[in-house]
Structure formats: structure tokens, C-alpha cells
Amino acid sequence: MENGDRELQTGLGHVEAIFAAARREGRAVFMPYLVIGHPDAETSLALVEALVAVGTEMFELGVPFSDPLADGPVIQRATQHALEQGVTLAGCLAAVRELRRRGISAGFNLMGYVNPLLAYGLERFCADATAAGVDGVIVPDLPPEENGELAAACSRHGLALIRFLAPTSTAARVQAVTQQAEGFLYLVSLTGVTGAREALPVDLAAFVARVRAATTVPLAVGFGISTPAQAHAVAQIADGVIVGTAIVTLAAGPNPVAAVRDFGQAMVRAPAA
């Protein structure tokens, strides 16, 4: 993958390298979620550039979908707005390709639902995603029992397929998912959909510890993290901190680039234990 005048490693190896570097330096990876095409196509790219400028190393980039069942109202509105502006899966890949052309070397994980991937074609999608500079794929409505075809296609093209675990995951489910895990594991901090919360779940540390005992793959926590203080607390127990709704809210407001940049700067400063 070309990145200006130098080769950029992308794919699973890139995800692993980012987490490995953060672990060596004793910090967590801040991973903001942005909806591609929100509030508009160019601003969504400018938001990525602004966050990279304050030290963001990895992103979760949302692919708009008409029925985002894991997302709360803020992200639902943002994805619907992007759809109304004509954003497609192909357009999302083009956005990543443009960010790479601009010299952005951060990790890019596309978060999208399975139907658009199936309509595009899994093999074709993985090939085009790799060519564009995507590193990983996050599909919240694809359970591990049904991810074989996508997992094989991701493997053939060097992409990380990111798996989920939730607080309600049984010991058997934790074992099954951790055996498949690569890149990082996405730990859903709570039951329910995405959205800002006033406090972190009281049993979050125990949940992270339970998964930590089963795998050496990095653990990133998402859902409900909305303040630098909460990000700092999560960074004490996890390898990555995923923040979505709070950032998407700022992206929909006045002066979105400056607002998201300032918020991201505060989040990046949340150290690990």
C-alpha cells in the first residue's frame, strides 16, 4: 500500500503493530468512531486529519447502513444523514483510499453491518478494502458461528476481522471467540446500544479481567465512554478505548473540526496503567 513516497504496512499486521507499540510505551490506544460522510464527505475526512494531528493512531470508521441495530439514536441519525447524501460502501472505500493518498498512516477499521458486505460480495469487498488501505473489519451483526466465509476472505487479503464479546458472554462463548480473535477484541462495556453514559458499568473491570485471563490479544472497550475521565479509567484496565457517540455529537455541531480535535486531544492524553 503506497503512502506518499513510502510503503505503509496495512492490514492485520498494522493493527498488531499499533497495539504492540502502545503496550511497550505503557498506554492505551484511543480509537474514535466517525461516520464516513457525516456531517458531509469532506468534513468527515477533515475530522480524521484533525484527530491524527493530536495523536490518534487508530480509527473505527462507520459505514452507513439503514438498520444499524447496535447503535443508539445519535449514530443512527448520523448514518441516515450520510445515506441521504448518497454515501455507499464503495464510497467508504474511496474515502479510505483518499485518506491514504493524503498521507494518513493511522489504523483504519471499517465498522459496518453484514448486508452491504454481502451485496458488494465478500471476496470483492476484502480485495478492494485491502487495496484502499483498510486494516480491519468490524461487523456487529455477524456472530462467530456465521463468520466463516468473511473470516476466510479477510485472511486471504490480510485483513483483521475484529470479534466482539459482551458482559453477558458465557465462559464457553469467551473461549470460542478468543480462539478466533485477531488484531484486538472489541469488548462491549454494557448491554444495549451505543450512546454516552454518565458512569461506567460497575462490573467492567471484572469483565475485562475475565477475558484477559483467556487471551493475549489486545482488548479494546467501547460503548458508553464519553468523557476524558471515563477514557482514563478504561485505559487503566484495557489496551484500547473506543469512543463514538460523544464524537459523532460534536461532528454534528458548530465548528466540528475544532470541536472534535480538542475533544480528541483530551482523550489521547488518557494514559494506561
Rank of each mutant, 00 (worst) to 15 (best):
Q85Y: 12
S66L: 10
I138L: 15
D141M: 06
E146H: 14
I162D: 04
L250G: 11
A153I: 11
P39S: 04
A17N: 11
L34T: 00
C126L: 01
V137E: 00
L51G: 06
D262P: 10
N147K: 01
I247Y: 10
I242W: 07
S169V: 11
E146Y: 10
A258W: 08
A20W: 03
A119Q: 15
D135V: 04
L185N: 01
N3M: 12
A132S: 13
Q80F: 11
E57R: 14
F59W: 11
H14A: 14
Y113I: 05
Q85L: 11
Q80C: 04
R156A: 14
E123R: 05
V243F: 07
R97Y: 04
A258N: 10
D141H: 09
G72Q: 12
I162C: 04
A176I: 00
R197Y: 06
E84M: 09
Y186R: 02
A131W: 07
Y33M: 00
A231F: 13
D5A: 13
G148D: 13
A199D: 09
E25S: 13
N147P: 02
V96Q: 08
G121D: 10
T168P: 09
Q265M: 10
L118T: 10
D262K: 08
A266I: 00
H81T: 14
N3Y: 12
F184I: 00
A213L: 11
H14N: 11
R27F: 07
A266C: 07
E57D: 05
P116V: 01
A166C: 05
G192L: 12
R77Q: 15
A70K: 03
P144G: 07
L161T: 03
E182R: 13
T216D: 14
V96T: 04
M31P: 02
L34K: 03
A231T: 08
D135N: 04
A205P: 11
R156P: 02
V268F: 04
Y120C: 09
P143G: 05
P32Q: 07
A259F: 09
L142K: 07
L34D: 00
S66V: 05
G86E: 04
I247E: 01
F263H: 07
E60D: 09
D128A: 14
L159Y: 08
V114W: 13
N109M: 15
S189Y: 08
R212Q: 13
L200F: 08
G91M: 12
T170F: 07
A131C: 08
V29G: 02
F207G: 00
V74H: 01
A246D: 03
E84L: 08
V177F: 01
E149G: 12
S155I: 01
G240E: 10
A213S: 13
A90N: 14
S155A: 15
A82L: 02
